[in-house]
């Protein structure tokens, strides 16, 4: 587990979304463990990992939720958008269709999030230069038209992976730094917020004890 017990000053929840097979899980393991798995498995439901980076001498802990890409899983995964301060929408630069889905993912995020999320568009698999189907300027243009940050990454050769996470975390930090995380780090304030909002779940009805950090 990546540095899970380290101390930190700020805790930000981030979600990874995008079509199946664009490399969300590998981007996450590249960032949190510096690993790439050629034999990666289908993500069922959600996966979770954390990592800590330094921004202006402050330790920022990213709590990252990697979601399954299949459409029908959204019924479950969209609950994780709540309380998230940031999101990476991934597409595969060698598969145009995954880029065409970006708009849908964006809509999905906006409809289901409760924060003013920092959203970054990530064109992954930039190492597949010969199979490129989405030009860098197309990605850039889409991002700027929708007010998103943009970067191209390769989880395989590790290029820009740390940069992508650092950039989004720094931006969140700049937006939120007036509001440090309050309370025990054992608790997960943002996830607690997920509970508070999920009104359809009666089992959670009586758990509205803690206040959210944001």
């Amino acid at each position: 587990m990546a540095r899970i017990d380290d101390g930190y000053d700020y805790l930000y929840k981030i979600v990874l979304v995008g079509d199946s097979g664009v490399g969300k899980s590998n981007l996450l393991t590249r960032f949190t463990k510096n690993e790439f798995n050629y034999d990666s498995r289908t993500t069922i439901g959600v996966e979770f990992a954390t990592s800590i980076i330094k921004v202006e001498e402050k330790a920022i802990k990213a709590q990252i939720w990697d979601t399954a890409g299949q459409e029908r899983y959204r019924a479950i995964t969209k609950a994780y958008y709540r309380g998230a301060f940031g999101a990476l929408i991934l597409y595969d630069i060698s598969k145009k269709a995954t880029f065409e889905s970006v708009e849908r993912w964006l809509k999905e995020l906006k409809e289901n999030s409760d924060n003013d999320m920092v959203i970054m568009l990530v064109g992954n698999k930039s190492d597949l230069t010969n199979q490129r189907q989405v030009r860098t300027d197309e990605g850039k243009a889409f991002a700027s038209a929708h007010g998103l940050n943009f970067i191209e990454t390769s989880a395989l050769d590790a290029s820009n992976v740390n940069e992508a996470f650092t950039e989004i975390l720094t931006e969140i930090y700049n937006q939120k730094r007036a509001k440090p995380v309050v309370g025990d780090k054992e608790q997960a304030p943002d996830v607690e917020k997920v509970q508070n909002i999920r009104i359809t779940d009666p089992a959670k009805e009586h758990s509205k004890k803690k206040s959210c950090s944001c």
Binding site: I44, G45, V46, A79, E186, Q187, E192, Q195, D201, S207
Partner: peptide, 18 residues
């Protein structure tokens, strides 16, 4: 689990679906 905010969807969905 209640105290920490661990809800069953976080693990049971995966456990059941495969």
């Amino acid at each position: 689990f209640k105290k920490l905010g661990i809800h069953p969807e976080m693990y049971m969905v995966k456990w059941i679906m495969c």
